[in-house]
Design a protein around this nucleic acid. Sequence first.
DNA 1: CTTGACCTTCCCATCATGGGAAGGTGTATC
DNA 2: GATACACCTTCCCATGATGGGAAGGTCAAG
Lengths: 148, 148
Amino acid sequence: MNIGQAAKATGISTKMIRYYESIGLVAAPHRTESGYRVYLDDDLHALRFINRARDLGFSVEQMRDLLTLWRDRDRASADVKAIARAHIAVLAEKARALAAMSETLQHLAETCHGDDRPSCPIIEKIAAAVPSSGRPANRPRFGIAQLH
Amino acid sequence: MNIGQAAKATGISTKMIRYYESIGLVAAPHRTESGYRVYLDDDLHALRFINRARDLGFSVEQMRDLLTLWRDRDRASADVKAIARAHIAVLAEKARALAAMSETLQHLAETCHGDDRPSCPIIEKIAAAVPSSGRPANRPRFGIAQLH
DNA sequence: CTTGACCTTCCCATCATGGGAAGGTGTATC
DNA sequence: GATACACCTTCCCATGATGGGAAGGTCAAG
């Protein structure tokens, strides 16, 4: 099985399959004489595992840990659960932060006529913060760019 | 006012203030004879505007648009509202996606004993997808890395 | 034997942000 | 005045996960 077929079979792009190999997240597969990568069932299982972990928002480094635990038949389920729980908390906090932004903006938008006139509470409140939207100086920022 | 003081006054790091200047998001401030940047009230207003827009999850390009609209006294409030509404939808969708991940993982974690024994439904279900967690092939991915 | 679909490696871009080096400036204290 | 220290300048590099694209090799069908 070539890399393109493996990509279709696992839902991971060829680019990313090569990337995961380059950073050692997955083992290098066999090669044909001409240098083509050949994927076997075990390779595909690992890639599918990665795809599902990725869908759950795990980072590459977390997936590395999960793959190690997956392969270790003697690991304690507590080890897996600890990773999961930490991740759940981070996901929930990011979701909360985004929802809060959305709602704040929604409130602002509701008070904006949205017609030809220039008066616009949205931009006015961004220009001069209302107390309720003030960020207490050192609360961690959760802008879009900080969400990974 | 030097850049460090401007940073404290606006909540934007010196690094980012210089960056916003370099990409033309804010105008270059005056300089002292020795080359130090000097920030005046107008500069600070713009930086505070940016900080608040950033707290609402707006991207640099969206902030560029918002700043233009802010400075244009004759703009239609509909123009501002359109940007806000598009952004609200994106934020809400990202929040939803993250919350869904968190909940899926939460369900898995609840069925895991989290003790010394190796049996762990979390990792087993990542290894062999359950139907309910299957991603319908071409639904847009919303992993952590795609959230910006 | 040509065509076209694949494969290979390599480099570059994204987005917003921080780190750090190498060197200049400004001010308070000895 | 000199020394120390905090600040400023520009410049380059890194992040994380992903895609784009170039330049060239391989394979199978017509």
